[in-house]
Amino acid sequence: MDYVILSMTLLAVGIYGLVTKRNLLKVLISIEIIAAAASMNFVAFASMVGGSLGQAFLILALSVDTTLTAIIIALVVVAYRDLGTIDIWALSRLREVRAARRRGKRR
């Protein structure tokens, strides 16, 4: 059993989701997976060395991760309220359409 390779596997799965999925919720889950893969190393290496400093660092990392999730969820909800979709491609297209409309109004 090697926890470093396990962590790399989880990282690869997270990057796969981040690159291929268009749903914002899936992208958020992928970010969570990447964060879990990174923070797993704290515990894995701390168990090798001995001591509890790795656990303390993991707790700090998880808190940061959770605040990040809160911010992204808020942005997702705002995007859904404004534009009615959570598809990343549709969101970028809608943004372009809005910018074009604004330019048209100015003229």
Binding site: V49, G50, G51, S52, L53, A56
Partner: peptide, 13 residues
């Protein structure tokens, strides 16, 4: 193999 007991959790945190 590192033979260190390390610090307890409450002290680390």
């Amino acid at each position: 193999q590192i033979n260190s007991k390390g610090v307890p959790f409450s002290e680390a945190l």
